[in-house]
């Protein structure tokens, strides 16, 4: 299935792009993260487990257990600092 992956702030800078369209067999956010970790050294560095990475599925804060569906939008970003 096709998934849009978005990156923001320091993670966007580290990966060098704000968005990518990926064809994936991953059924959960966790499996997709594994796949992205193997995609490039930049991905591996920015999305490493143990780092402060927050995630959203279809624009709602989510954890790695979230289930993906075709056409969904996933986002990875650092802890938020607005206000």
């Amino acid at each position: 299935m096709k998934v849009t992956v978005k990156y923001f702030a320091s993670i966007r800078e580290a990966i060098g792009q704000g968005s990518e369209l990926r064809e994936t067999a991953a059924s959960t956010l966790s499996a997709l993260r594994d796949e992205l970790l193997a995609a490039s050294p930049a991905h591996a560095g920015a999305l490493a487990r143990g780092k402060a990475v927050r995630m959203a599925l279809d624009q709602v804060m989510s954890d790695e257990s979230a289930v993906l569906r075709d056409g969904c939008e996933v986002a990875f970003f650092p802890p938020v600092t607005g206000g």
Binding site: F8, A9, S10, A52, A56, M61, A75, F77, P78, P79, V80, T81, G82, G83
Partner: peptide, 20 residues
Amino acid sequence: TQAPFWKKEQTAEGARWVDA
């Protein structure tokens, strides 16, 4: 803590992302 905004500050030592 929940709205997706991120701040990047410009200081004398360069730019830095603000920590939560």
